[in-house]
């Protein structure tokens, strides 16, 4: 008799998991009434993946992204980010974890009184990097996103696309483990939005950066390698595009 292996190892088990989510639920209280934003979501993200999360408005995309980005804690279920369960972390540990996550928002969320380079420097400043080093890092990052000649412009002096590029530079500057973007093109015209997406694809392809992008634009979603569809707080489909 030959012993049968109880488990057959697959190649995927050797690829490091950046994010592992099991049975994630999130309830919000609307006054007295609980609203289930997420109802049992499970998924895992490997290093180097490029994922689009699509779904109608109110389907829980932002809520999911906030968990992944350690901005919020789950009601139940587990969220492992780089192997650590975020629900066990203290506020400060959660904050430290966020320093290794790049977040890009639909509304750019730049600090309006700081110029482009000042905004890009902020994550480094929060991480305690010295002035000189963070200046040069931020400058390089702004050059990479094509704003080398705009570093001293205030957000109000930049176009929407340029602002979002500053936000992308800010998300990238601290060498994050992964980047999450919540409808990054939602406030941009189609052409500018596609430019941002091209840039994101390039980052993923050339630098191997793990990317999760939330969008309700199907055209933009179709550019990703893997697409997760959410509906009413649940995953409707999770498929890889070839």
């Amino acid at each position: 008799m030959t012993a049968t292996l109880e488990y057959t190892m697959e190649s995927e088990d050797f690829i490091p998991k950046v994010i592992e989510i099991k049975n994630l639920t999130k309830l919000y209280m609307m006054g007295e009434v609980p609203v289930a934003a997420l109802r049992g979501v499970s998924l895992s993200v490997n290093k180097g993946e490029f994922i689009a999360v699509i779904g109608p408005s109110g389907s829980g995309k932002s809520t999911l992204l906030n968990m992944i980005g350690a901005l919020d804690r789950p009601t139940s279920g587990t969220v492992l980010v780089n192997g650590t369960d975020i629900s066990t972390l203290t506020d400060n540990q959660l904050a430290d974890l966020r320093q290794s996550v790049g977040f890009v928002y639909q509304t750019f969320n730049l600090i309006s009184r700081l110029d482009a380079i000042g905004n890009v420097e902020l994550p480094l400043s929060i991480a305690g990097v010295r002035k000189k080093l963070r200046r040069s890092k931020a400058e390089v990052m702004l050059k990479i996103v094509g704003l080398g000649d705009r570093i001293h412009h205030k957000p109000s002096e930049l176009s929407g696309g340029e602002r979002q590029r500053v936000a992308v530079a800010r998300a990238l500057v601290n060498n994050p483990a992964f980047i999450i973007m919540d409808e990054p093109t939602g406030n941009l015209d189609t052409k500018t939005g596609l430019e941002i997406m091209e840039f994101a694809k390039k980052l993923n392809r050339e630098q191997g950066i793990t990317l999760i992008i939330v969008t309700h634009d199907l055209e933009i979603g179709s550019q990703a390698r893997r697409t997760i569809r959410l509906r009413d707080g649940q995953i409707e489909s999770d498929e890889v595009n070839y």
Partner: peptide, 16 residues
């Protein structure tokens, strides 16, 4: 308030 959210979102500690 929003600015504080942005800063905390980037990992700034409450005491900072």
């Amino acid at each position: 308030t929003r600015e504080i959210g942005i800063l905390k979102g980037m990992g700034m500690h409450g005491r900072t």
